[in-house]
Amino acid sequence: MGNESGMRSIGEMARDSGLGVSALRFYDGAGVLVPDWVDPVSGYRWYGPGQLDEARLLAHLRRAGMPLADIRLVTAGWSGSDTALVLKLLSEHLLRLERGLCDARRAFSTVRDLLDARETPMSSTFAHPHTAPVRLTVSAPGLAAALDAVRFAASTDPELPMLGGVLFDAEGGTLRVVATDRYRLAVSATGVTGAGEGEYDGSRVQAVVPSPLADAMRALLGAEGSAELRVEGDRVVLEAGERQAGGRCGATGFPDYRRLSRLPAGRRAPVDVPAFREALLGGPVRSQVREEDGAAYDVSVLEVTDGGPVSVREHASPGDRIGVNRAFLLEALAAADRDRLVLEAGTGPRPLTISRGDDEETYSMLMPVIVED
């Protein structure tokens, strides 16, 4: 069985069609796309050459959000000579989408009116050209460690410039650094050890440092000593010893990470990071395609029980499982820089939280991936 006979395994069909392995299993169970042959011993699914076009059709219909009941009728009528029903179903779904878009435009217009009617908490505290200069002193290795813990989560999406950097958020005796790209959020902190010329009174000051500038600042920070951070209007400067890096602040509009971090309690499980990383790299994955940009990625399904352990599974009970982007999780584990970490998972859309047991100020969160059986 295999390429010589023209048959495709479920993994090959997922790769060639754009449907994830979990979606193929789902459509098999729903009777929409049933494999031509299932090995009676192993249970492996094998798809015939003629099923690839049908799988690609399914991928497009799924991406368009067509209901399963209509998908069943479209695929049933696709191979027939009379396409009237198929065309009718496509037209009706397109009309639903257009109506939904009109409803969404009205809802977004209302949201914009609400935003215009109030000053958002985040934008009111960002540095701008009329803000008095602020100087504060931080530990150089402390800031270096904080940047290392969050930099991986900064966005590279040019359509979202306000996320293309690291938020520096100073308040009281703490400087927090934050990065997010929508799919993950990372937060860390270091103490403020002093203020230049008494100019910093502890009130909240924020500035988004573009990623290239944040990297240049990180390169200045050594294993000892202190650094001075200055926010001067729309510019931010870091000085360490006789060297400095500075530039314009990034776009405002960074989300309220404190609100995003308020989550219901979940199942907490300690993990041995080296062993867990090995399990992730060698464990089963599911292939998924991100709807926003069509990018393919691997999903690891975790079974998280309160108090431990955390297992990488092919299948897991719905109440204990969570699907996550494997590459994102591996990056978060590396950035946390500990051999022991705590994972916390909940049910439904609650993000997976990765935290250090010895540092509650440093943590990251990964949005879950919907896993279908």
Rank of each mutant, 00 (worst) to 15 (best):
residue 74 V to W: 03
residue 53 D to A: 13
residue 61 L to K: 13
residue 28 D to H: 15
residue 32 V to I: 14
residue 38 V to A: 04
residue 56 R to G: 09
residue 64 A to Y: 02
residue 103 D to L: 11
residue 70 D to I: 02
residue 60 H to G: 14
residue 42 S to I: 12
residue 92 E to Y: 04
residue 66 M to W: 11
residue 53 D to P: 14
residue 36 D to N: 06
residue 48 G to F: 11
residue 54 E to G: 15
residue 101 L to F: 01
residue 85 L to S: 05
residue 84 A to S: 15
residue 40 P to T: 14
residue 73 L to W: 09
residue 34 V to F: 07
residue 25 R to V: 15
residue 74 V to I: 15
residue 98 E to H: 07
residue 50 G to F: 05
residue 43 G to E: 02
residue 83 T to Y: 06
residue 73 L to S: 14
residue 25 R to L: 13
residue 76 A to E: 12
residue 64 A to R: 12
residue 86 V to M: 01
residue 67 P to F: 06
residue 50 G to A: 11
residue 66 M to I: 15
residue 91 S to A: 14
residue 66 M to N: 07
residue 52 L to G: 01
residue 57 L to K: 09
residue 82 D to K: 00
residue 33 L to P: 11
residue 83 T to M: 08
residue 100 G to F: 00
residue 95 L to C: 06
residue 94 L to W: 02
residue 71 I to S: 11
residue 94 L to E: 08
residue 69 A to G: 06
residue 57 L to G: 01
residue 40 P to C: 12
residue 49 P to D: 02
residue 93 H to Y: 08
residue 70 D to F: 08
residue 95 L to G: 10
residue 93 H to G: 08
residue 71 I to G: 08
residue 89 L to Q: 02
residue 60 H to D: 13
residue 102 C to I: 09
residue 89 L to Y: 02
residue 98 E to A: 10
residue 104 A to P: 03
residue 37 W to D: 06
residue 32 V to H: 06
residue 96 R to L: 10
residue 36 D to A: 12
residue 55 A to H: 14
residue 76 A to K: 12
residue 58 L to A: 05
residue 97 L to Y: 07
residue 44 Y to E: 00
residue 50 G to K: 06
residue 48 G to L: 02
residue 84 A to V: 13
residue 61 L to H: 11
residue 56 R to S: 08
residue 74 V to T: 04
residue 31 G to R: 11
residue 84 A to T: 15
residue 35 P to Y: 06
residue 34 V to G: 03
residue 43 G to L: 10
residue 99 R to W: 09
residue 71 I to P: 04
residue 56 R to H: 12
residue 101 L to C: 01
residue 102 C to Q: 13
residue 25 R to T: 12
residue 71 I to Y: 12
residue 29 G to L: 08
residue 55 A to G: 05
residue 101 L to G: 00
residue 53 D to S: 12
residue 77 G to S: 11
residue 38 V to L: 03
residue 56 R to M: 07
residue 100 G to W: 02
residue 37 W to K: 11
residue 88 K to V: 09
residue 95 L to F: 05
residue 57 L to I: 14
residue 91 S to N: 05
residue 47 Y to I: 09
residue 89 L to S: 03
residue 55 A to C: 06
residue 42 S to P: 13
residue 53 D to Y: 04
residue 89 L to G: 00
residue 47 Y to W: 08
residue 46 W to E: 01
residue 46 W to L: 01
residue 48 G to T: 12
residue 46 W to M: 00
residue 89 L to T: 07
residue 77 G to W: 14
residue 80 G to K: 09
residue 82 D to P: 00
residue 89 L to N: 04
residue 93 H to C: 10
residue 35 P to S: 07
residue 60 H to I: 15
residue 93 H to N: 07
residue 49 P to L: 01
residue 36 D to Y: 04
residue 81 S to P: 09
residue 82 D to E: 08
residue 41 V to F: 04
residue 73 L to G: 03
residue 96 R to C: 14
residue 27 Y to P: 09
residue 103 D to K: 10
residue 36 D to I: 07
residue 51 Q to D: 04
residue 43 G to K: 09
